[in-house]
C-alpha cells in the first residue's frame, strides 16, 4: 500500500507504449452520446466528505444522501455500510442504507448521457470504478458532480479530493470495469431523469419489502403519475396502503386494478385480506372464490387456500 504521484512527464513514453494498450483501450461508445457536445455542468453545492482509509463507500454515500436533503452523518453511514473484514462496502448495502434514510436508490443507465441528465436534475451520481485493471482490481466509489464536455473532463468528489478532475476517456475506462454501476438518490416523490420502468419499480418494491410503506406509497403514486393506470404500480400502491393499515384505501386501489385486469389473481388475494381486515368476511371469501376459479398455478393456488382458511378462521372467531 502506498501513494504515488505523477513525478515525470509520461507523454514521451506514449508512442512506445501505444502498442501495449490497444487491446484493452477501446473507447466505450457513450462519449459521443452527450446531449450537449460543448456544454458543461457542475453541481458545486454538493457537500464533500473526505474518506478515511478504505471508506470511500460511506463517504460517497453520505455525499449523495446529504445532497438529497437527508440529515445523516458520515459516522452513521459507516455503521450501516462499512464491512471491516472486507475493508470496503458492498453495492447492495449502499442501496440498503439509502432506503433506511427514507429514500429510493435508483441505478442509472450505464451511459454518460444518463449521468448528464441526472446532473441536470440536480442529482450527483455515485459510481463504482475499478481504478486498476481486471486482474488487479482497485474498487472505488466516487461521486460524479460535473461534466465538461468541451474539455473532455469529468468532475468527481473522490477519496480525499474535493474536486478531482479526470479525463472522460479515463473515467469511462474505470467505470466500464465497474460494470457501469451508478446510482442516484431519489426522494420518494421524484422520478429518475431517465426512468427504466422495471428497474425503477424494483427499487420501489424493495422499499416495501424493507418496511418503508409510507415512502413506498408516495413512490408508487409518483410512478402512477408517469405510467397512468399501470397495474403493477397500482398493486404496489395498494400493498403499501395495506401495510399502512389504510384498508379502505387499499381496497379501492385493488378494485381499480381489477377493473383494468380482472384476472389479476394476486390482487384479488390481497383484496380479500383487505376486506377481512374491515370485518367483511363474506365479501372476502367471495373474492377468494373468484380467484380460485381463475388460478392456473399450483403454488399460487396453495396461497389462495391459505388465505381462505385464514379468513374463515377469523370469521369463526369473530375477530
Amino acid at each position: 500500500m502506498f501513494r504515488a504521484q505523477r513525478v515525470f512527464d509520461g507523454s514521451r513514453l506514449l508512442p512506445a507504449l501505444l502498442v501495449l494498450v490497444t487491446g484493452c483501450a477501446s473507447i466505450p461508445p457513450s462519449v459521443s452520446e452527450l446531449p450537449a457536445p460543448g456544454g458543461s455542468i457542475e453541481l458545486e453545492d454538493t457537500p464533500f466528505y473526505p474518506q478515511e482509509r478504505y471508506q470511500c463507500g460511506p463517504a460517497a454515500l453520505t455525499t449523495v444522501l446529504v445532497k438529497s436533503g437527508a440529515t445523516v452523518s458520515l459516522d452513521e453511514i459507516v455503521d450501516k455500510v462499512y464491512l471491516p473484514g472486507r475493508q470496503g462496502s458492498l453495492q447492495f448495502e449502499l442501496l440498503a442504507a439509502v432506503r433506511t434514510e427514507g429514500r429510493l436508490p435508483y441505478q442509472v443507465d450505464g451511459t454518460l448521457d444518463a449521468i448528464w441528465r441526472e446532473l441536470e436534475a440536480g442529482r450527483p451520481v455515485l459510481v463504482l470504478q475499478n481504478l486498476g485493471v481486471a486482474a488487479i482490481p482497485s474498487w472505488h466509489y466516487a461521486v460524479v458532480i460535473g461534466i465538461d464536455a468541451g474539455r473532455g473532463e469529468i468532475v468527481l468528489r473522490s477519496g480525499t479530493d474535493r474536486r478531482r478532475v479526470t479525463r472522460i476517456r479515463t473515467f469511462l475506462h474505470t467505470w466500464r470495469r465497474g460494470d457501469y454501476w451508478g446510482i442516484v438518490v431519489l426522494e420518494p416523490d421524484e422520478l429518475p431523469a431517465t426512468a427504466d420502468r422495471s428497474r425503477y419499480f424494483e427499487a420501489i418494491a424493495a422499499l416495501e419489502q424493507t418496511g418503508r410503506a409510507e415512502e413506498a406509497a408516495v413512490a408508487w403514486r409518483t410512478a402512477l403519475g408517469n405510467w397512468p393506470g399501470d397495474t403493477v404500480a397500482l398493486f404496489g400502491l395498494a400493498n403499501a396502503l395495506f401495510a399502512l393499515r389504510d384498508y379502505r384505501a387499499a381496497e379501492e386501489a385493488y378494485r381499480d386494478l381489477l377493473e383494468r385486469d380482472g384476472g389479476a389473481v394476486v390482487a384479488r388475494n390481497n383484496l380479500a385480506l383487505a376486506l377481512a381486515e374491515q370485518g367483511r368476511y363474506d365479501a372476502a371469501l367471495q373474492e377468494i372464490g373468484v380467484a380460485l376459479s381463475q388460478s392456473r398455478d399450483a403454488a399460487l393456488e396453495r396461497e389462495l387456500r391459505d388465505t381462505e382458511a385464514t379468513i374463515q378462521r377469523r370469521k369463526a372467531g369473530g375477530q
Binding site: G10, L131, G132, R169, T170
Partner: peptide, 21 residues
C-alpha cells in the same frame, strides 16, 4: 512488475489508481 505495468496504463489513461487514495 505489476507496479510498472500499472504505471504505464496510468500514464496512457487506462487506469486511474495513483491519485485515488
Amino acid at each position: 512488475a505489476v507496479f510498472v505495468v500499472l504505471l504505464i496504463l496510468e500514464l496512457v489513461g487506462v487506469t486511474d489508481i495513483f491519485k485515488s487514495f
